[in-house]
Design a protein around this nucleic acid. Structure first.
Lengths: 343, 343
DNA sequence: CTGTTAGCGCATTCAT
DNA sequence: ATGAATGCGCTAACAG
């Protein structure tokens, strides 16, 4: 006489003629009953089609979920297209999967964490969320939080020295003090508009990745004895082929035509290279182009892109490992200059 | 006198001097109390720092979760690197995000759904999971299931006519009956090995995407009056640059050297084009190469790749929409031949 | 319109 | 080693 078609701990215990604590122990606390008894119960459950305690109820009771939310800076939709973000996710998921933890994707466009906060053990935040209210809540939320590429004084964080890396790559690209430099920046401004940027003073204290990189560029430009015109910086609102191409075309058509293009992502640099080639320019003779990230496509392109390689996958692994260990610490990730033929 | 530092429905109700049902109604059922009362309560909760009913408890009670699991064919890790899968995810997440539903990534390598089944409203399965036990469980699980690119007789499914598309692209590539054809297949075999495939009879009834595509190729080859040698088919275990390059090199070095390469993914076709160029072959004069998927990089490559474009993002949107509407139906997605200079 | 109450499915004391 | 009882935080039915 089998009972309901969907078993619960209670109903299965009754069916087996044991107390529900015994069934619970059989699944969760092997030390609380004899091995024989345990296996007998497990076998009986399996035969009846009971696969173990309901996870939702278990979580409500225990307060743990085996789910971590990956908070993306933008919409999930947008993030999935970014090869750098994808690498990061790969690293995170590799570690979590190995530990039986599931990954919930959460958009940084959300106003708050409410819809997931009660379902997860904590948050790994990849980049500062676009929505500022969300950032405020992340500072306070009573769960474990690991931040990546930004810092809000929470449990742990993983960072790359963006400023130093940008300095290095720019230093490498700039060789003569009569170089004409232009910067193709990624998300320098809050608003979603593709345009030149004039208000440079705003960036001096900015903590976003873009601002850190900009400072690195500026430092190298200044070190090279070059003066950067105040109309030589573009803001690209998102790392897409389309926007990048438009900005690159604009920059390469501007007067004086730049002979060095500092690009804040490889996707942008690749788009710039395509535009330059399309305009009949030689790389690097007419224009040197450097990127940032070190994505595969850049290394396959002809000419090979000179860029900063940051190991995003490792960044993901470290972030996940830090999350699991609950260590409170700040990790700094290495980067390498990857010299190609584009500079 | 504020009470606990973490509010519950009950404690906040007591604090406000109302019944807990009233608080619950204020958050969930506006029609159950006056607007004024509702707003008064909501405001008071906000001031005290109570952000609404605990979602985990709410879900346990209601049996709904606002989370859907995206079941990937492989590890999450691997999937995130695949541009086609990424597009699909983009489509899915766009629709779900708009509807306030969260996305949980779930690996098709898992043995069972147990760790998440009690947390989600259902499953969107992108491709047949690698683990067969998982497939069995998906057939039976008591939650809503939408399958994509395969069919197990569940609630809804989304498919592309892979066989027809492969037939079309192969037909286009094959023009002379003395063409020497080789096939670079993706996951034709269950095991993870890169090798030539000899046991062709196994594929005639296979339902996987690879088998469907293979049948399309075979049909076109046969229609062209060509006999395909039984050592002209390679199995590539995963859609990675590395494996694809090895297989391509092997195929292009084999005797007789193929002058038509039918590739089951664009990533494979791109790797094959790179190898061919590296060997000093001209495309398409010495060897024609066609792909499958229609990824961006293929369209940017020189020569532009001839391929089948399937709109993965739309596939994702349709899958998600079908999931939300709970319609029971099978959708077939269009594809287009995208003619480049590689054939 | 409001309050009381019985579970959702489970883990964990505290007895025995 | 086991069973009874309590409550995790909430919703919905019902009674008022």
């Amino acid at each position: 006489m089998t009972k309901p078609k969907t078993w619960t701990l209670k109903s299965i215990a009754k069916e087996l003629g044991v107390s529900n604590a015994t069934v619970s122990n059989a699944f969760n606390r092997p030390d609380q009953l004899s091995k024989a008894r345990r296996e007998e119960i497990l076998a009986a459950c399996k035969k009846l089609g009971y696969f173990g305690p309901n996870k939702a109820a278990q979580s409500l009771r225990r307060g743990t979920f085996n789910i971590v939310a990956l908070v993306l800076p933008d919409s999930v939709e947008y993030m999935v297209s970014d090869p750098v973000a994808s690498s990061f996710m790969r690293g995170v998921s590799a570690v979590l999967e190995k530990n039986g933890i599931n990954l919930l994707l959460f958009s940084g466009n959300n106003d708050n964490l409410n819809s997931v906060v009660d379902f997860v053990d904590g948050f790994i935040c990849y980049g500062r969320p676009r929505n500022k209210q969300l950032v405020e809540q992340l500072k306070q939320v009573a769960k474990h939080v690991v931040t990546v590429d930004f810092n809000i004084g929470r449990d742990a964080s993983v960072n790359v020295n963006n400023q130093q890396a940008s300095f290095d790559i720019a230093k490498h690209a700039l060789q003569k003090n009569d170089d004409r430099v232009a910067i193709l920046g990624l998300r320098l401004l809050d608003n979603d508009v593709l345009c030149r940027v004039y208000e440079h003073h705003e960036f001096e204290a900015g903590q976003s990745i873009a601002h850190q990189r900009l400072r690195g560029y500026h430092q190298a430009i200044s070190d090279a004895g070059i003066t950067l015109g105040d109309d030589r910086t573009w803001n690209i609102p998102e790392s897409s082929e389309r926007f990048a191409s438009i900005a690159a075309k604009e920059a390469l058509s501007s007067t004086p035509r730049p002979n060095v293009l500092l690009c804040m992502s490889d996707l942008i640099a690749l788009a710039a290279m395509r535009e330059a080639l399309k305009m009949g320019l030689s790389i690097p003779e007419d224009v040197k182009i450097v990127g940032f990230d070190g994505i595969d496509e850049g290394q396959r392109f002809v000419p090979k892109l000179t860029t900063v390689h940051q190991n995003s996958e490792e960044k993901g692994r470290i972030a996940a490992t830090l999350f699991l260990s609950k260590e409170q610490q700040t990790a700094e990730i290495d980067y390498q200059l990857q010299l190609g033929q584009s500079s």
